[in-house]
Simulated assay, not measured.
Amino acid sequence: MRRTVGRRRGGAPGEPRAVGYLYVLPALVLYGAFLLFPLGQTVWLSLLHWDGLTVATWAGAANYQALLTDPSLRGPFLHALVLLLFYAVLPVALGLLLASALSRFRVRGTAFFRTVFFLPQVLAMVVVGVAWRSILGPDGLLNDSLRAVGLGSLARSWLGDYTWALPAVGTIGTWVETGLCVVLFLAGVQRIPRELYEAARMDGAGPVREFLAVTLPALRAEIAVALTLTIVAGLRNFDLIYITTAGGPGNATSVPAYEVYHRAFETNEVGSAAAMGVGLTVLIFVLTVSVARLAEGRNR
């Protein structure tokens, strides 16, 4: 009797699983149509020599070999790794410092500061690029301020200097991403039990030791999320480069995302652009998975 009732309620043994597949199938179709299919087509194009107009010819792994041997293709990836220092490492460090300070000293108006720090994330990157291009220009606010305090010898065209163009763009990235990290870490600090801080202070812990013993271990999950988001933002950076420097001067600020656009639509090297896009995808995947693995390993 129990078996009969169980069959009526649950149906055939494979029926619940089949119904589950039916619910998931539309999402899988959309995922395949809008992500897997374009990705597969990009991989196929990366195996060809094609200018976008004439008949394509087979290239095999030649486009991928060029990523490792051609300085004009390898350079953008090196620039992207340098920008990760400004887009990921510095924002996370500054975010931890500011979040710890705001939580430790009980600053009034925390919601106001949180909004101010997060404001760069709300602005369109085109607006950010135009504003900072004006600030860092030869007659911009930064150079005018240097001249006003007697440091006119340091004034320069920051975005047009071969040495300083890439750090200048990176500084903009630091300004944009720091607010995101501050908001994430403030949310994480608020869930840390105050008893842990009180116990650390009773043991004689100062601000630095308190941060290392209590705050930092408790924010591992938030740090992993912040690193993932900032790494992805740094590696897929296109609009900021396009607005501020267009990859210049020369190729001093060229990054993979901008180089994909340049080769696909300006020099008509579609196969090479596709190979660079695939390489960028692999790099993002490897770095984000590594961050996730490190976070999971430390939480065990």
Rank of each mutant, 00 (worst) to 15 (best):
M1S: 13
R2W: 13
V5T: 14
E15P: 14
R17L: 10
R17C: 02
V19T: 12
L25P: 08
A27P: 02
L28R: 11
V29I: 15
F34L: 13
L36Y: 09
P38H: 03
L39Y: 10
Q41P: 06
T42H: 04
W44C: 02
H49D: 01
G60Q: 00
A61V: 04
T69W: 01
D70F: 04
R74W: 14
G75K: 15
F77H: 02
H79D: 05
V82E: 15
V82H: 11
A93M: 02
L94N: 04
L97M: 10
L98N: 01
A99I: 08
S100V: 07
A101F: 06
R104S: 10
F105T: 02
F105D: 01
R114T: 05
R114H: 03
P120Q: 05
M125L: 08
V126S: 05
V127E: 04
V130M: 06
W132Y: 12
R133K: 09
R133G: 11
S134G: 11
G137R: 07
D139G: 15
D139N: 15
D139W: 15
D139E: 12
L142N: 07
N143S: 07
G150M: 09
G150S: 03
G152N: 03
S153A: 13
S157M: 11
G160W: 01
Y162C: 09
W164A: 14
A165Q: 02
G170Y: 01
T171Y: 14
T171D: 03
V176L: 11
L180Q: 13
F185R: 03
L186H: 09
Q190M: 11
R194H: 09
E198W: 10
A199L: 05
R201I: 07
D203C: 09
G204L: 07
V208Q: 06
R209H: 09
E210G: 14
A213I: 07
T215V: 05
A218Y: 07
I223A: 06
T228F: 06
A233N: 12
R236M: 08
D239C: 05
D239L: 12
L240D: 02
Y242C: 03
I243R: 03
T244F: 04
G248L: 08
A252K: 06
T253V: 03
T253A: 02
A257W: 10
A257Q: 08
E259L: 08
Y261L: 02
E266Y: 15
M276T: 12
G279C: 05
L280E: 00
V282D: 00
F285S: 13
V286D: 04
S290E: 05
V291K: 08
R293V: 15
R293P: 15
A295S: 14
A295W: 06
R298Y: 14
N299G: 15
